[in-house]
């Protein structure tokens, strides 16, 4: 599904990713953990094509499509979804209108028929219920005046509506209490399936109690330095990152 080979990337001419390899199969959930400043968010931004994050070498392909060649919105059409660490506000732009426009754009470019208004509304309301947001949030401006937890749930709402192939969640757990964490995890788990993969970026093991990964990778100084099964996360929780970094060095 996703194949990242020898990815190098820099921000403001500073090398951040230094030869990163990652392969995610269809239906798999991979967790990426690592110390602050390791380059986790950079990885997500480079995959999404955020301006200012420049891939200087290597490749990222999703379902055989070379993402690095594409505009950000074309990467979305290819099936990529990023749940942001800090979702921004779009004042005055109703959540409903935003979702509808996004769903229609994605359907159009993926060559599938967009739902009619009634079907869309029904789906949107169901998705709201799923992430435990009142349907009133559909009428409000995108993230406008939302609490941190509401913003994260709104991200999952968008994820549910857009039916991506690959979801990258960047620290979606940060700032969430246990209840909200459960809601977010339930949303993700409900989307798990044979043809959808996840890359879950997190600093803490906690989230992985709720979203159990198939693989765990440790990202440090722009590279994956260790990979393992879900038990690796527990080990990291107990012993921190230092021992691996030493082991590798």
């Amino acid at each position: 599904m996703l194949s990242i080979e020898n990815l190098q990337a820099s921000v403001e001419d500073k090398a951040i990713l230094k030869g990163l390899n990652l392969s995610v199969g269809a239906g798999e959930v991979h967790a990426i953990m690592g110390p602050n400043g390791a380059g986790k968010s950079t990885l997500s931004n480079v995959m999404g094509g955020r301006p200012g994050y420049e891939a200087t070498g290597g490749s990222v392909t999703l379902g055989g499509v070379d993402l690095l060649e594409l505009e950000p919105e074309e990467r979305a059409y290819a099936g990529l979804f990023l749940a942001f660490q800090y979702p921004v506000e779009l004042p005055g732009v109703s959540n409903m209108e935003f979702l509808k426009t996004a769903v229609e754009a994605n359907c159009e470019h993926r060559g599938i028929e967009a739902p009619n208004t009634a079907a869309f509304l029904k789906a949107a309301r169901e998705a709201c219920a799923q992430v435990n947001l009142s349907p009133d949030f559909l009428k409000r401006g995108v993230n406008e005046g939302f609490s941190g937890g509401e913003r994260k749930r709104n991200e999952i709402l968008q994820m549910i509506m857009l039916q991506p192939k690959l979801c990258v969640l960047d620290e979606t757990d940060s700032g969430l209490d246990i209840d909200a964490l459960q809601v977010v995890a339930d949303g993700v788990n409900s989307l798990r399936g044979a043809d959808r993969s996840f890359v879950v970026i997190t600093h803490y093991q906690r989230l992985l109690d709720y979203i159990v990964p198939d693989f765990v990778h440790v990202l440090s100084d722009g590279k994956i330095i260790k990979s393992g099964g879900s038990e690796l996360a527990l080990e990291l929780e107990k012993n921190g990152y230092g021992w691996i970094e030493q082991e590798v060095a």
Binding site: P72, R75, F84, L90, V93, A105
Partner: peptide, 28 residues
């Protein structure tokens, strides 16, 4: 902001659509 534009684009809106949506929201 670039962050607003990127959010819109990541969700599948082209930049023109994104700007017009943000501006429309501003004028609501």
């Amino acid at each position: 902001s670039d962050d607003q534009l990127f959010l819109c684009q990541q969700r599948g809106l082209d930049p023109e659509k994104a700007v017009s949506m943000i501006v429309n929201g501003f004028c609501k």
